[in-house]
Every structure is written in structure tokens, then in C-alpha cells.
Write a protein that binds this DNA or RNA. Structure first.
Lengths: 234, 234
DNA sequence: TTCTTGTCACCTAGGTGTTAATAT
DNA sequence: ATATTAACACCTAGGTGACAAGAA
């Protein structure tokens, strides 16, 4: 699903945040290699601000080249640019999302793709469902962490060497309470099965190729320790 | 939910088995007390034959007292008795269902009621979904086991003392591919939320009392170590 | 004006007993 | 005859963006 992340990223990925908590789409998922089969690991994610700015939806009525004709919708006027609205709001409570299967053996984690589809984003500063709290209209970079559960008694001493972090730049996004770029909306509708109700193309054409994905297999992912991971998040 | 199990048991509980696997209803669930908060435990269930017999649906056309008029359905003729049809079929592959949260700390298990709602029963001898395999038209007794995960290196030596088993006789049942006793069918429809589509009573009456449960709080559960458990399965 | 909230129709995903057809 | 199977309508449970109303 790396291609899908990059397709969103080229448009400027947006993720909805709600009071109750909203899943990410695409889902962040990884294929893991190189773990000690018999050792225990915890897998988790967190989110770091990409900058210290607050954004707002900008209007470029004249930019007809970027936003041509037909696919222009209600928010098309907003979709052409993000403008800096000022300094970032106060940082949200820093939370971490443990993959619910944590802890588990290396063999278990490597058996198949690990999916963080239970992770939810919220803009409620007082959330007590354990969801990730983000500021709307701010940009974030998801991070993935692997923590080795050290069996030694004085494991605290080795905390620094017992985890590795990974960043996939194509998964960065802007948190929003409503989509700003109409092209993002259309791509979500086209690719998220739960949004199928808003598709309006000829149903027959979906039968053969359910998703109009770009077929650009660009290899631009970044990782702090690429040797440990195979593939990339979905 | 102990009252519900007993209500079914008084009629002769039946559980559907299918090729794909079918949940049990009621769900087996327990409230646990007395664990070591910091120790690891695995929780699991298995099923033992209650006897070495095969049953068949018997008909007592004359028993009008038991099966009176209105609630008689298509299988009413069958519902009045179970007849012994002969010796038990060859034993099914003996399987065990680990609660999916296993292993976990005692504190985690005791935090709330533990529910075995992921457990599924099948009659497919070649099942490879890890479901519990049972012979249709045979009677079974569910068992619940608590296994202490011994941190000692030679933990195998203490295997015998590191687990305890519990039996609740009100959860015994006959495995079937289709319900035989029409009263069981009606009680399932009345009490299982997923069968709500088959309820046909006055919708208004459900508003106040969603389930016509018996209010007989008979205390007849058996347990090999009652002191460890509080309450009973649902 | 711009952003946020709550409700909604419309989906996915999967658990029910029913029913008709098939198997034993 | 009796038991099993597979397709089905009808539910629960919850994930979508649209939309109208509200807030800043």
C-alpha cells in the first residue's frame, strides 16, 4: 500500500480528527524482518509536529491550472494552498499508541504485516479513551517504534539500546476537522472501502479495477534503520 | 448471566455446530479473583464428552402437556425427547481454545469479566481455523482452565501444580447442526441480540423488559476450586 | 469568514435462525 | 426419516464523508 500513501502525499495528506476519535486512512502498516524469533517486543507509534506553525485554508481563485473544471467541489476554492496562520497552538498531551498485540514474540510480529488500524486520532484535549491527541490545522509525522523487552533484571540500564525508531516521510499529514482539498476527499472515497457509499462512477467499471491508483513505484521512503524493515507502511 | 445459562439448561441447552464455526450462545464468561497481580497466566477452555452415547431426536406425538399448541413449530414433533441412538462416534481431535489475550498479568485478567466470545464450534473434522471440533448429536461439558506461567527455568517439573480447572455444570449442552427443541430456538431468539430479526412480539413491550428471563436464582454451580472464582459464566 | 460539531445515509464486516435442497 | 449444508434476510457494531448548524 506504499503507492497509496505516496499518492495521498503528493496531494498533501489530510487526516480527520474528531472528538470521538477517527481512524487514519490509509492505515499505517509495516512488514518486519530481522527480529529475534523468541524474544519479546512491543510495537508502538507516536506523532511529532513537523513544524511549529498553525495553518489555514488559503484561496487562490486564479489558479485554474491546479484546480481545473469538473472535479471542483464545494471546497474547491479552499483547496489550492495552505497558508501559515501563525505560531503553533500549545502542544497536545504527548501520547503513544501501543499495538494491541504488544508484547509478542518476534516470530509472531514477523509472521504477517502488522497493521495499526485500531489507532484513532482526536482533537479532544481531555480525551480519556487513550486516543492520540492532535491539534487540528497542524502538520504531523507518524513514527514507528520497536521496543525490545529486555529480560535482564537491570534492563533500565539498557533502555537506550533496546529500541529503534522508523520514520516514513510519505505518511506525514495535516490534521483537520473537515477536508480542505477536494482531491483528498475524492481519493479517500475512491480508496477507502467504508466510503464506498459516496462513489458515483459506473459500477461496472469498478468490477475490473476497483481503484484508480497511480502506478508510480517510486522508491523514496526514508528510514532510520532501513535494514530492519522490508516494504513500507500501507 | 448465570440465570440465562440455567434457563437454557433446564430446557436442555443446544449449541449449533457448522463447517465454518459457530459461536456459543450464551457466551462462556467468568469473573476471576485471587490471582497474583504481577504474574502471567494463560486462560483456556476445552470440551469433554459427557457420556459415550450418540443421540437422536425423538418424537412423542402424544405428549401434549409438554408441547402445547401455539408455540409448536416445524420441529415440534422432535422436541419432546432425546433418544440414545447408539455408541458415540469416534472422538474428535482434542482441541483447546486459548483466550486471545493470553498470556496476561493477573491484574489484567481480574480487571473485568473475561469473555470467551471468540470461541467457535465446528463439526468439520479437518478444520484448520483452530476451532473446537465436536460431534453433532453428542453431549459436552465445557471446562475452564487457568495456567500459571511459571518463570522458573525447570517449570515443566511443576506443570501439575501450575494449573487449575473449573467446571460449571449448567453450561453443558448437546451439539446440533439444527435446533431440535423449539423452546431452545425461542429462548435463543429472545435472548441473543443477533437474532433480534426473528422476534415478533409487540415491539413496545420490549422497551421495558428486553428479555423474559426466569428470576430463579438457584445456586447450583459446581467448581473444583470455588474459592478462586466469583460469580459464574454468563 | 473559517473552523468545529453532531446527525445522517450508506457502507463494511460479521453473527442470527430460516428455509430449501441435499446427504446419509 | 433424520441430519447436514448453503444461501438468505435481518440483525449488531462500527467506519465513511455529506451536510446543516453552531462557535470562534
Amino acid at each position: 500500500m506504499k503507492a497509496l500513501w505516496e499518492e495521498f502525499n503528493q496531494l498533501g495528506t489530510e487526516m480527520i480528527v474528531t472528538k470521538a476519535g477517527r481512524r487514519m486512512f490509509p492505515t499505517f502498516q509495516v512488514k518486519i524482518l530481522g527480529m529475534d524469533t523468541l524474544a519479546d517486543y512491543a510495537l508502538l507509534m507516536d506523532f511529532v509536529p513537523l513544524d511549529d506553525k498553525r495553518y489555514r485554508s488559503g484561496g487562490w481563485p486564479g489558479d485554474a491550472a491546479q484546480t481545473s473544471s469538473a472535479e471542483m467541489g464545494r471546497y474547491a476554492f479552499h483547496s489550492s494552498a495552505w497558508l501559515v496562520a501563525g505560531k503553533a497552538d500549545p502542544a497536545t498531551p504527548g501520547r503513544v499508541h501501543f499495538h494491541p498485540d504488544s508484547p509478542a514474540k518476534g516470530a509472531q510480529w514477523m509472521r504477517q504485516i502488522v497493521s495499526f488500524d485500531k489507532l484513532k486520532l482526536t482533537n479532544n484535549l481531555l480525551d480519556d479513551n487513550g486516543h492520540i491527541i492532535l491539534n487540528s490545522m497542524h502538520r504531523y509525522q507518524p513514527r514507528f517504534h520497536v521496543v525490545f523487552v529486555d529480560p535482564r533484571k537491570d534492563s533500565e540500564r539498557y533502555a537506550q539500546e533496546n529500541f529503534k525508531s522508523f520514520v516514513f516521510t510519505e505518511t506525514q499529514f495535516t490534521a483537520v476537522t473537515a477536508y480542505q482539498n477536494h482531491r483528498i476527499t475524492q481519493l479517500k472515497i475512491a480508496s477507502n472501502p467504508f466510503a464506498k457509499g459516496f462513489r458515483e462512477s459506473d459500477p461496472d467499471s469498478w468490477t475490473v479495477s476497483p481503484r484508480p491508483l497511480l502506478s508510480v513505484p517510486t522508491q523514496s521512503r526514508s528510514s532510520l534503520s532501513p535494514c530492519l524493515l522490508k516494504g513500507s507502511p500501507e
